[in-house]
Design a protein around this nucleic acid. Structure first.
Lengths: 112, 112
DNA sequence: GCGTTATATAATCGATTTGTTATATTCAGG
DNA sequence: CCTGAATATAACAAATCGATTATATAACGC
């Protein structure tokens, strides 16, 4: 699977998004991540594996447990893709487009 | 399926992302959307259905064909979710931030 | 109405996903 | 070493996905 598909696919599960949300408060072990969820430990382990395969988190062995941390640069890849479309919904950003258009066409008249 | 999951899931397929990319150039019929792809018409029809169910596109009957258009506000929902995490990766400035910084400090200087 | 075009739906198939329980691995501490 | 905690893996079942072919629906032009 291509990288972007893996990222979006990993994000398409509410449990995994909740795990990411938890990790935005700081690193945590898999056991701690599992706590809020009514599913088994192996199920969480697989969710973690999906997130790791997509590059959204990293795990480092730390003695007995494994510390999970966010890899935000991977989320940025998804955000960058979506940003291609930002101009279609975010009128306020047309300020930027206007600015860029201006500097690209320094003296000529209408920008429209 | 919850809305955000449906959106990310719809975005997790390269064919569907290509369809959205094509629609960013303007509305198109299903047949026209299908043209670049080596898969059957029903397969495209289902991809369109997935995108429509997620709210990423809309279709309006237009005589014999159906006009597909982007619904960018739905993409904004995914972008908004990701933006919660932007602070984790975006230490430096985005283009917009750079622009806003520039106009806030009109003194000029290095463009780099 | 008829044939053509555009599109959706149904039936089906194989691959993937998500959960389960059971078991293995790996480390810490006595 | 042995026990227990933390985590991964295996084996399996049910659900979903993405593709196919065949068929249905709806509108157009004659």
């Amino acid at each position: 699977m291509d990288r972007l598909s893996a990222i979006f696919s990993a994000l398409s599960d509410p449990t995994r998004r909740a795990i990411l949300a938890r990790l935005s408060d700081g690193p945590a072990s898999a056991t701690r991540l599992a706590k809020p969820f009514p599913i088994s430990q192996p199920a969480i382990s697989r969710h973690i594996k999906v997130l790791r395969s997509a590059g959204l988190i990293a795990q480092t062995r730390e003695g007995q447990w494994r510390r999970c941390v966010l890899k935000p640069e991977t989320m940025a890849e998804a955000a960058d893709w979506l940003d291609q479309y930002r101009k279609f919904w975010d009128q306020s950003l047309t300020r930027l487009d206007t600015y860029l258009t201006k500097i690209q066409t320094p003296k000529k008249g209408k920008i429209s």
